[in-house]
Design a binder for these strands. Structure first.
Length: 901
RNA sequence: GGGGCGGUAGCUCAGCUGGCUAGAGCGCUGCGUUCACAUCGCAGAAGUCGGGGGUUCGAGUCCCUCUCGCCCCACCA
C-alpha cells in the first residue's frame, strides 16, 4: 500500500492477493474515523443497529450473512451522503453465558452454589472481560463499518438503567405483575422460560390407559388416558364433559388414585373432549396448564410433585421420592401393571417443548413468576403493520408477525439465574409486614415499617434488555443528543428465528417507551445451510468459519458470494466440504476486477477531455450508457432490498460488458498513444471504472478501494467510503450506441460460432463478407474494424453493398443476424455443403415458426386492440426482423441448391 | 388444529405490477497458452416452468384444484 502514487506504471501482481491489504485498509478507515458519526453532525441519519450477538458467540456464517447485509446497506447510504451509523454491541445472553461459565467451573470440580452468587457473577464478568469482545473483533475482519466508539453491551451501566426504568414504568402502569401460573420450566437450567424459549418438536410417545377405581362401588372403575403417568401422583381430580352421556351421573362421585390412595372428585367441564381417549381426564393442576385452568374453575387444589430438577418430591409416596421424572414414569407404569390398573399402552404422536438453550424437555410447572401483560403493548405494534408504517421484506413475514400479535400471550420475564439484570423489587423481611418495593433506585429500608429489605433473587429474561436495544444504546432514559439524532433507526436486518423473541418486542417497546416505531423496515435474511440443505450448527459440525474463508479468499470474496447467493427471502446453501467451490465466484470476481485494473491503470493518466480533440466513439457512448442504466437498476434494487440483484448487476456489467467488450474495443486506441482516440478512450475508461468501483464498493469494499486509490490524481487520502455514490445519468442513455454495439457483438459472436461449428483452426484468420448490415453496425464497424478483426480473428471484412453475398453455390458458411444482415465465410474445400444446408434448414424452420406465431399474434385483433402500444410495436419490429432473417435464409438455401422449406 | 412458504436446466436459484425467441452462477461437452486475467477466453448441450382445470388477445407469472416438500404457531390429556 505504500506505493508511490506518482509512479505511472504501477506494478500489480497478476493474481489478486487480499491478505494484508484488507486489514491495512480497514485499520486506516477506522483510524480516520470514517465509520464514526457524531450526533451533532447527523442532519440526515441512516441507522442500523446490529442484532447483538451473544457475548459467548464466535462469528459463524449466519452472522457473516446478516452482518454483511447490514454493512452493505450502511455503506450504500454512507456513500449517498447520509450520516450512516452502524451501531455494534453484544448481548449478555443470560442462560447461554451462565452455562458457559458453569462449565468452566465444573472443570474445577465446583458448582455455582459452591462459589455463591456474588463470586459466581464476578467469575462471569471475568470471562466476559476476557472473551466477550471476540465476536466484535471478528466483525472487523469481514469489513463491517461499525461505529466502534458506540459499542454497547446489554449489561452496561446505561442499558441496565434502561431496563430498570422499563420494569418500574410497566409495573406502575399495571403491565408488570407477579403471579402463580403454569410456566415452562427447564429442570437442567433451573429456570422458567417464556413460551418462545420452549421449542416444540414432534415426538412419538405413548398413551397409557389406566383404571381409577370408584369409591364404594365394588369393582367399578373409570378409565383415563395419559401420556405422562408419573404426573398422576399429583392428580387432585378427574373431569368429564357435562354432555357426555356415558358419564352423565359420574360427576360428583369419587375415585381412588391408584398407588396413592387419594380420593379424587369427578367434575364436569366443557374443556374435556369426549372423543379423546375414554373421555375422562385426570387432573394434575400443578403440571399441566389445562388441568390448572379446570382445577381453578372447580376449586380443586394443585399439588406440585416435583423438585426444581424435575425429581419427584416429598409429596409423593415414599418409593417414588427422588426419582427423576422419567425413572418415575417407568416405576409408576410397572406398579400400575402389577396392581392390575394398566389397561393398555399405545404409541402416540404429540409434540414436546424443549429448552432452546440445552434441549432438555421442559416441565410445565406451577410457580411464582413475574409477567408482562402483552395485549396493550401489542395493539399499536399490530396497527403499525396494518397501516403500512412497518414493512417486512420479504412481505410474507408481515402475516406471521400479525398472526403472533393477534394471539399474543403474557410474557414470563423472571429467570431463576444469577447472570443478568436483577429484578428491581424488594420484600420486607419483617414479620407480618408484607411490603413490596418496586424502585428505580435501591431502597435502604422498608418504607412501611423500617425493617430490612431483601431483593427478589431472580433476574430478568435476556430479551427484556434486548427489546430496548434501538433506544437503550442511544442513552435512553436520558434525553441524549444521540437519541434525538438517531432514533428511530431505519432498517433492521435479522434472522426470522428471532422475529418474535426480538423484532416484535422491539416494536412494542418502541411504541411504549419512545412513542414511535423503532424502525420502518425489517429485512429478514435466510438461513445458511450446508450442501445437503441442513442448517449449519455446532452440533452437526457442518459450519463454515468466516475467518477461515477470509483467510483463504478474502473478505470481499466472502461478502460477494454471500450477497449474490442469497436472494431476498431464500436460504443460502454453501458447500461446507469444499470451500473453494463455495467461494470461488467471489474470489474469481475480485481477481477479474484486479486484472481489469491492472490493464487499465497505466493508461488512465493519459485521459483528456474529448473536446480537446477526438470525439467519443460508439463504444465509449455505449459503455457510459450501460453504466447509467446499471446505476439506475442498482438504486432500484437497493430500495427494495434486493441485494443479490445489486451483486448480479455489478457482476454482469463489470465482467460481461466492461471487461469482455469495452476493454477489448478500447485496446486498439489505448495501444496507440499518438492518437487523439487514445486520450478519449482513456478518459472513458477512467469514467466507467470510477463508476463501477463505486457501485461495487458497498459489497466489495477492499478491492475497490485498493484500486480506486491508484487512479490518477488519487492517493491514500482519497476514499470511496464516503462516496459520492454515482448518479444514474439519464443524459448518457444512448439508444443509438447501444443498438450499434449490440449488433457488433452479435456479428462477432456469430462468426465465432461458425468457426466453432466447423471446427476451423482458431488461429487462422478468416475473410468474411457482410451484407445488409444496419446503419448502426456499419458505423460501429467503421470505428472498430480492427477490434472486430482481432476479436473474431479475421483478416478482412468485406461489406457487400449490392447484389448477393456469394455467388450461386459458392461453398461457405453463413449466419443471419437478428440485428439485421448476414455474414458469409467463404470456405472452399473446407465446408461440407450438405451439412451447411442442413444447419440452415434447421434455422429456417425455427425462424419461420416464430414468424408464424408473430404473424398470428398481430393478425389477432384481440391482441392488437388490447395490448399496450409498446408491446404491439415490439411485435411488429420482431416481425420485420424475422421476415428479413427468413428471406436471407431462404435465399441462402436456394443458392446452395436446396428447395426452401 | 391454525398460519405461512415453496416445486423453473444435473445442482443452487433469478424471472418484481401477466407481454422481447424463459435467464444466471456452478457443473457438463468441445476448442483455445504472444499482447490484463487459465482465479482466463470462445463456442455448445441441457428446461412438458410439479399435474389438471379456469380467467385472458396473451399465463412460469393471476384464480381454482390435486400432489409433493418445507417453516412457524398451538394447552387435546
Amino acid at each position: 500500500m505504500a506505493e508511490a502514487t506518482g509512479t505511472r506504471r504501477t506494478e500489480l501482481a497478476p493474481r489478486y492477493d487480499p491478505s494484508g491489504l484488507e486489514g491495512e485498509l480497514y485499520d486506516e478507515w477506522v483510524d480516520r474515523g470514517l465509520f464514526h458519526v457524531a450526533a451533532s453532525d447527523a442532519d440526515d441519519p441512516y441507522v442500523i443497529v446490529i442484532p447483538p450477538p451473544n457475548v459467548t458467540a464466535a462469528l459463524h456464517m449466519g452472522h457473516g450473512l446478516n452482518n454483511t447485509i447490514q454493512d452493505v446497506l450502511t455503506r450504500y447510504r454512507r456513500m449517498q451522503g447520509y450520516d450512516a451509523l452502524y451501531l455494534p454491541g453484544t448481548d449478555h445472553a443470560g442462560i447461554a453465558t451462565q452455562n458457559v461459565v458453569e462449565r468452566t467451573i465444573r472443570e474445577e470440580g465446583k458448582t455455582r452454589f459452591d462459589l455463591g452468587r456474588e463470586a459466581f457473577v464476578e467469575r462471569v464478568w471475568e470471562w466476559v472481560d476476557e472473551y466477550g469482545s471476540t465476536i466484535i473483533e471478528q466483525l472487523r475482519v469481514i469489513g463491517c463499518s461499525c461505529d466502534w466508539e458506540r459499542t454497547r453491551f446489554t449489561l452496561d451501566e446505561g442499558l441496565s438503567q434502561a431496563v430498570r426504568e422499563v420494569f418500574v414504568r410497566l409495573y406502575e402502569r399495571g403491565l408488570v405483575y407477579r403471579g402463580r401460573y403454569i410456566i415452562n420450566w427447564c429442570p437442567r437450567c433451573g429456570t422458567a422460560l417464556s413460551n418462545e424459549e420452549a421449542e416444540h418438536r414432534d415426538h412419538t410417545g405413548r398413551l397409557y390407559r389406566i383404571r381409577y377405581p370408584l369409591v364404594g362401588e365394588g369393582d367399578a372403575f373409570v378409565e383415563v388416558a395419559t401420556t405422562r403417568p408419573e404426573t398422576m401422583l399429583g392428580d387432585t381430580g378427574l373431569a368429564v364433559h357435562p354432555d357426555d352421556d356415558r358419564y352423565r351421573d359420574l360427576a360428583g362421585r369419587t375415585a381412588i388414585l391408584p398407588l396413592v390412595g387419594r380420593e379424587l372428585v369427578v367434575v364436569a367441564d366443557d374443556y374435556v373432549d369426549p372423543e379423546f381417549g375414554s373421555g375422562v381426564v385426570k387432573l394434575t393442576p400443578a403440571h399441566d396448564p389445562n388441568d390448572f385452568e379446570i382445577a381453578r374453575r372447580h376449586g380443586l387444589e394443585a399439588l406440585d410433585v416435583m423438585t426444581d430438577a424435575a425429581e419427584m418430591n416429598d409429596a409423593v409416596p415414599e418409593p417414588y421420592r427422588g426419582l427423576d421424572r422419567l425413572e418415575a414414569r417407568e416405576r409408576v407404569v410397572a406398579d400400575l401393571e402389577a396392581g392390575g390398573y394398566l389397561v393398555g399402552v399405545e404409541d402416540h404422536a404429540h409434540s414436546l417443548g424443549r429448552c432452546y438453550r440445552c434441549d432438555t424437555i421442559v416441565e410445565p410447572r406451577l410457580s411464582d413468576q413475574w409477567f408482562v401483560k402483552m395485549k396493550p403493548l401489542a395493539e399499536p405494534a399490530l396497527e403499525a403493520y396494518l397501516k403500512g408504517d412497518l414493512r417486512f421484506h420479504p412481505e410474507r413475514y408481515g402475516k406471521i408477525y400479525q398472526n403472533w400479535m393477534e394471539n399474543i400471550r403474557d410474557w414470563v420475564i423472571s429467570r431463576q439465574l444469577w447472570w443478568g439484570h436483577r429484578i428491581p423489587v424488594w420484600y420486607c423481611r419483617e414479620n407480618g409486614c408484607d411490603e413490596m418495593v418496586v424502585a428505580r433506585e435501591d431502597p435502604d429500608r422498608c418504607p412501611a415499617c423500617g425493617g430490612e429489605l431483601e431483593q427478589d433473587s431472580d433476574v430478568l429474561d435476556t430479551w427484556f434488555s434486548s427489546w430496548l436495544w434501538p433506544f437503550s444504546t442511544l442513552g435512553w432514559p436520558e434525553k441524549t443528543e444521540d437519541l434525538e439524532a438517531f432514533y428511530p433507526t431505519d432498517t433492521l436486518v435479522t434472522a426470522p428465528e428471532i422475529l418474535f423473541f426480538w423484532v416484535a418486542r422491539m416494536v412494542m417497546a418502541g411504541f411504549e417507551f419512545m412513542g414511535e416505531l423503532p424502525f420502518t423496515d425489517v429485512l429478514l435474511n435466510g438461513t445458511v445451510r450446508d450442501h445437503q440443505g441442513r442448517r449449519m450448527s455446532k452440533s452437526l459440525g457442518n459450519g463454515i468459519d468466516p475467518l477461515e474463508v477470509v483467510d483463504l479468499y478474502g473478505a470481499d470474496a466472502m461478502r460477494f458470494t454471500l450477497i449474490r447467493g442469497a436472494p431476498l427471502g431464500t436460504d443460502l446453501q454453501l458447500n461446507n466440504e469444499d470451500l473453494e467451490e463455495a467461494f470461488r465466484p467471489g474470489r474469481n470476481f475480485a481477481n477479474k476486477i484486479w486484472n481489469a485494473a491492472r490493464f487499465a491503470l497505466p493508461h488512465l493518466s493519459d485521459a483528456s477531455d474529448p473536446e480537446s480533440g477526438a470525439e467519443r466513439l460508439l463504444a465509449d457512448r455505449w459503455i457510459l450508457s450501460r453504466l447509467a442504466r446499471v446505476t439506475g437498476e442498482i438504486d432500484e434494487a437497493f430500495d427494495t432490498f434486493r441485494l443479490h440483484e445489486v451483486a448480479e448487476s455489478c457482476h454482469s456489467f463489470i465482467w460481461g460488458d466492461f471487461c469482455d467488450w469495452y476493454l477489448e474495443l478500447a485496446k486498439r486506441r489505448l495501444d496507440d498513444p499518438e492518437s487523439g482516440g487514445h486520450r478519449v478512450a482513456a478518459l472513458t475508461l477512467g469514467e466507467a471504472m470510477d463508476g463501477w468501483l463505486r457501485l461495487l464498493h458497498p459489497i466489495m469494499p477492499f478491492v475497490t478501494e485498493a484500486i480506486a486509490r491508484r487512479l490518477p490524481g488519487r492517493g491514500p487520502e482519497d476514499t470511496l467510503v464516503m462516496g459520492p455514490w454515482p448518479e444514474p445519468a439519464a443524459d448518457r442513455i444512448d439508444e443509438e450506441a447501444e443498438g450499434a454495439i449490440e449488433a457488433l457483438r452479435e456479428l462477432v459472436g456469430s462468426i465465432r460460432a461458425l468457426r466453432a461449428e466447423y471446427r476451423l483452426d482458431p488461429g487462422k484468420p478468416l475473410d468474411v463478407r457482410l451484407a445488409g448490415a444496419s446503419a448502426g453496425l456499419r458505423r460501429a464497424l467503421s470505428e472498430e474494424r480492427d477490434a472486430v478483426r482481432r476479436m473474431a480473428s479475421l483478416s478482412t471484412i468485406d461489406e457487400v453493398e449490392d447484389g448477393p453475398i456469394a455467388v450461386e453455390g459458392e461453398p461457405g458458411a453463413s449466419a443471419v443476424l437478428r440485428t439485421g444482415g448476414e455474414v458469409f465465410i467463404p470456405l472452399a474445400g473446407v465446408i461440407d455443403l450438405d451439412r451447411e444446408r442442413e444447419r440452415l434448414t434447421g434455422e429456417t424452420e425455427q425462424i419461420s415458426g416464430l414468424l408464424r406465431a408473430t404473424r398470428g399474434k398481430l393478425g389477432n385483433s384481440g391482441f392488437v386492440d388490447n395490448a399496450p402500444e409498446e408491446v404491439v410495436q415490439r411485435e411488429r419490429d420482431k416481425l420485420d426482423s424475422l421476415a428479413e432473417q427468413l428471406e436471407r435464409l431462404e435465399d441462402k438455401l436456394r443458392s446452395l441448391g436446396a428447395t426452401a422449406s
